[in-house]
Deep mutational scan, measured.
Amino acid sequence: SIEEEIKKAEEAKEKGKTFIHGDFVATTEELLDELLKRLRKKL
């Protein structure tokens, strides 16, 4: 679910890890923020 993806992305951000969502690879905090923004729009 979208909620689960958001939670996983937030955890990755806290730990400074890379998060992959489909073909979107978030390797930096900026990219994770962008991904979180996109996911929240889908809610």
Rank of each mutant, 00 (worst) to 15 (best):
S1P: 07
I2Q: 04
I2H: 02
I2D: 03
I2G: 02
E3C: 15
E3M: 13
E3W: 14
E3R: 12
E4C: 14
E4W: 11
E4G: 05
E4H: 07
E4R: 09
E4P: 02
E5F: 14
E5A: 15
E5I: 15
E5N: 07
E5P: 04
I6E: 02
I6K: 02
I6Y: 03
I6S: 03
K7V: 06
K7H: 08
K7A: 13
K7F: 07
K7G: 06
K7Y: 06
K7C: 09
K8G: 08
K8I: 05
K8P: 01
K8D: 03
K8S: 07
K8T: 03
A9C: 14
A9S: 01
A9D: 02
E10K: 08
E10V: 08
E10P: 01
E10I: 12
E11P: 00
E11A: 08
A12P: 01
A12L: 04
A12T: 02
K13N: 02
K13I: 06
K13F: 05
K13T: 01
E14K: 13
E14S: 12
E14A: 14
E14W: 10
K15N: 11
K15V: 04
G16L: 07
G16I: 06
G16D: 03
K17P: 03
K17N: 13
T18I: 13
T18H: 11
T18D: 06
T18G: 10
I20K: 06
H21I: 11
H21K: 02
H21D: 04
G22P: 04
G22D: 05
G22F: 09
D23N: 12
D23T: 13
D23R: 01
D23C: 14
D23L: 12
D23G: 11
F24S: 03
F24W: 09
F24V: 05
F24E: 04
F24C: 14
F24G: 04
F24T: 08
V25R: 03
V25N: 09
A26R: 02
A26E: 02
A26C: 09
A26F: 10
T27N: 15
T27Q: 05
T27C: 10
T28D: 05
T28W: 12
T28F: 12
E29K: 14
E29V: 14
E29R: 14
E29L: 15
E30I: 06
E30R: 09
E30Y: 10
E30M: 08
E30K: 11
E30L: 11
L31V: 03
L31D: 14
L31W: 06
L31Y: 04
L32Q: 00
L32I: 13
L32K: 01
L32G: 00
D33N: 11
D33I: 12
D33Y: 08
E34S: 04
E34T: 04
E34R: 07
E34A: 07
E34L: 11
E34G: 02
E34H: 06
L35V: 03
L35C: 07
L35D: 00
L36N: 00
L36Q: 00
L36Y: 01
L36P: 00
L36G: 00
L36M: 02
K37D: 13
K37V: 10
R38F: 15
L39Y: 01
L39R: 00
L39K: 00
L39W: 05
L39V: 01
R40K: 09
R40C: 15
R40Q: 09
K41N: 11
K41S: 07
K41W: 08
K41I: 08
K42A: 14
K42G: 04
L43D: 01
L43I: 04
L43S: 01
L43G: 01
L43Q: 07
L43N: 03
L43K: 05
